[in-house]
């Protein structure tokens, strides 16, 4: 008797559990959770964009309307952006941001690819220790290096130059690039190198003709991540630049908070300029970013 009671009991438990499970994994629950998540994560972006189109009166209206009507918006609609580009030096900031990010990306991709290939294919004394050093270097907190970099650039007369930013961003991104590229090269069978050597190619030809073309997705991931990380960097850009000759967009956006009266619509527009390329990259290159982030964090 007792045992059969217990059986029925477990059976009921099972069914209760099962129905909670079914509820939690049902289409509607999943969609509800995901919609809330998406709303939470994207609303600030939407709000930045909407606010960047508003007049100051529109900004100050309380409560603000989620979908603004025409009276709250500037006319023409891109007026705030024009103001930033023509009156607030955002043309220079954008130029600086682009140059710094592109040059950094070129350097990091080149060196990262070379070193990644080296680490994936060759052995040398203490190579494991060098590699662990690189792994560690990429995790050093940049803020910890701010003081020495700041002084070094001061002594080299590189404060307030784009060169200083390129140097710092290379330091910040090269270890990750080496790490990612090495892992990517390891995923390419060494048989292909050997086949190429036997076919008569030199080591350089093998690298250039056979391995590098196959590593394109890895190179793409490194390039995209490096560009994004350089584009969005704020701390060093803020500390090392003073004038429009080197300030980048994130710095330009931050500067507006220091005005006596904060013009939130301009600030939103500046913020949106800062995030726009990054948003586009995520939409266009999601695959590379996701693989780069996960491989960079976890995969050996």
């Amino acid at each position: 008797m007792a045992t059969s009671d217990k059986l029925i009991d477990t059976d009921r438990w099972y069914r209760i559990n099962q129905s909670i499970g079914e509820f939690l994994t049902s289409k509607y629950t999943v969609v509800a959770i995901l919609s809330t998540m998406v709303l939470y994560f994207t609303f600030p972006i939407y709000w930045t964009f909407i606010s960047s189109l508003k007049t100051l009166d529109g900004i100050h209206a309380f409560p603000p309307s989620l979908v603004p009507d025409a009276s709250e918006l500037v006319d023409p609609i891109w007026l705030n952006y024009v103001h930033l580009l023509t009156q607030r030096s955002f043309d220079m900031f954008t130029f600086n941001s682009l140059i710094v990010a592109l040059v950094t990306t070129a350097i990091v991709v080149t060196f990262g690819t070379l070193a990644g290939y080296g680490f994936s294919r060759f052995r040398f004394p203490y190579d494991d220790y060098v590699f662990i050093g690189i792994l560690g270097a990429r995790l050093l907190p940049p803020i910890g290096m701010l003081v020495p970099f700041y002084r070094l650039f001061g002594q080299l007369n590189l404060i307030d130059t784009r060169i200083a930013l390129v140097v710092v961003y290379t330091y910040m991104n090269l270890p990750l690039a080496i790490w990612l590229m090495r892992n990517y090269f390891i995923s390419i069978p060494a048989d292909l190198d050997e086949a190429s050597y036997i076919d008569g190619a030199t080591r350089f030809q093998t690298f250039k003709d056979v391995i590098l073309p196959l590593a394109k997705p890895g190179v793409a991931a490194v390039a995209i991540l490096t560009f994004l990380f350089s584009w969005r960097e704020f701390l060093f850009a803020f500390a090392l630049t003073f004038t429009t000759s080197a300030k980048t967009i994130p710095v330009g956006a931050m500067m507006m908070i220091e005005d006596v009266v904060v013009l939130w619509n301009y600030l939103a527009a500046g913020g949106f300029i800062a995030m726009l390329p990054a948003l586009l990259f995520v939409v266009l290159f999601q695959r590379y970013i996701v693989s780069g982030l996960t491989a960079g964090a976890v995969k050996g």
Binding site: L192, A195, Y197, I198, D199, G200, V210, P213, L214
Partner: peptide, 18 residues
């Protein structure tokens, strides 16, 4: 290998995928 003038067929074939 380049200088030895030998050809090799690999277990994995090692065809250049691209």
């Amino acid at each position: 290998p380049r200088e030895r003038d030998v050809a090799m067929v690999f277990q994995t074939y090692a065809l250049y995928p691209h």
